[in-house]
Design a protein around this nucleic acid. Structure first.
Lengths: 229, 229
DNA sequence: ATTTAGATTTCGGCG
DNA sequence: CGCCGAAGTCTAAAT
């Protein structure tokens, strides 16, 4: 990892073209050849960057300025990209050995939400029981297939954030499932930690029930269960 | 901007929980209080981070190790987040004045594609003429509203990458537009630089035509036009 | 290898 | 200020 602070001007050409006027920025040059250009603000996203695999070549302009050219080969996904960094002045330049990172361990994403709801289906609707998780269909798996108090089928789509696409997805499942005479009628529940108003409206329009899920409360239920055994 | 290279262990708790075992990493501390944790690989996304606004507080553990705690307040968007960085050894620690960045200038995104197609609708279908761009409807603007050689209405949805949600979006527009006796029948064209197979199948199933757009060729047409005048 | 769905998505525009 | 759509999205799992 090489860390450079420099006054520079940057031009990118590839999937789009972008330009950064001359200013002082941080350049992060990683071991795999990738390059990140950061300013002193914004979020985690760099102003500009080059994804690996790519190669950096150092050159000199006609005016005698240092110029770095970072290039990647054209792949099936996109055209060949070029990042041109024209360096006016280097304020800082250091090299560091970091080694391979052991990697990130995550917990609390959609999969966990689905697991918790599978164990506590009654939090979605009274009398609901689980038939199976990841119920397979021709167009993909339904997150939770359940049965309600009347013995009728209920398909549940779980999302961390409930938006229109999720409602569309559940609608496609319901359309398909309701063609099966052994299952029908199948109704739907759209479950998410947070449901956007537009998604709620669309769901209502299609007779789909919305359920807001409290992740912490579910986790609490789960821990309570654990203590019983 | 403060750049730190250190052996550290990191724990994040907020929208999810995440853990990074002890290893050497780069810590980028920006002027707005945000923190980025980078390893020597991966893409532009940090292993872990904290978005502004947030505050960093330095402390010491019972074992005498330095500990940084970065916290942000709970907002309407999410709960309060905490990033705990336990520092084992600092290899490098420098401070740099960067100033405000003049910002990025982009060119070549969906808006541009839409503009080019608006000027050259016949590349989508022979005899097609533009009625208007961003044609307003109750559920949002249709990218391009056109008329074909027979004088019938054609709604065009423009995407850089054509996926299922784009087809769903166009379907919703068509359903609404076809309720209008003055417009109907309205057919649809789904235009994108690249169309995914599943999106193509769904479009075909709904009688929507797909058009793959060559951005460079369109830009060429545009330049040719310019030269005529 | 290709495709698809999820993300601590972030970012910008408009009402 | 909140909602909505686009992104050089990236990434990991499934096909």
């Amino acid at each position: 990892m090489r860390l450079v602070v420099a006054r520079c001007q940057i031009d990118y050409a590839g999937r789009l073209t972008a330009h950064l006027p001359m200013a002082t920025r941080v350049l992060m040059l990683k071991a795999d050849g990738s390059v990140l250009v950061h300013s002193d603000g914004g979020s985690y996203k760099p102003l500009n960057w080059m994804s690996p695999p790519c190669t950096l070549r150092e050159g000199t302009t006609d005016e005698g300025q240092v110029e770095w050219t970072v290039t990647s080969r054209a792949t099936s996904k996109g055209p060949d990209d070029t990042l041109r960094i024209l360096i006016d002045e280097i304020h800082h330049d250091t090299q560091h050995e970091l080694g391979i990172d052991p990697g990130l361990q995550k917990d609390g994403v959609e999969k966990h939400l689905q697991e918790l709801l599978a164990e506590h289906p009654t939090t979605l609707a009274p009398g609901l029981t689980l038939v199976r998780r990841e119920y397979p269909t021709a167009i993909g798996p339904v997150d939770l297939m359940c049965r309600d108090a009347n013995g009728e089928s209920v398909a549940v789509e779980v999302k961390r954030r409930g938006e229109i696409d999720g409602v569309e997805q559940l609608t496609r499942y319901l359309e398909l499932l309701n063609r099966d005479p052994l299952l029908r009628p199948v109704r739907g529940i759209f479950a998410a930690q947070e449901i956007k108003p537009q998604a709620r409206v669309l769901a209502g329009d299609r007779g789909i029930m919305c359920a807001t899920v409290d992740y912490d409360a579910l986790r609490g239920l789960d821990n309570a269960d654990d203590r019983l055994f």
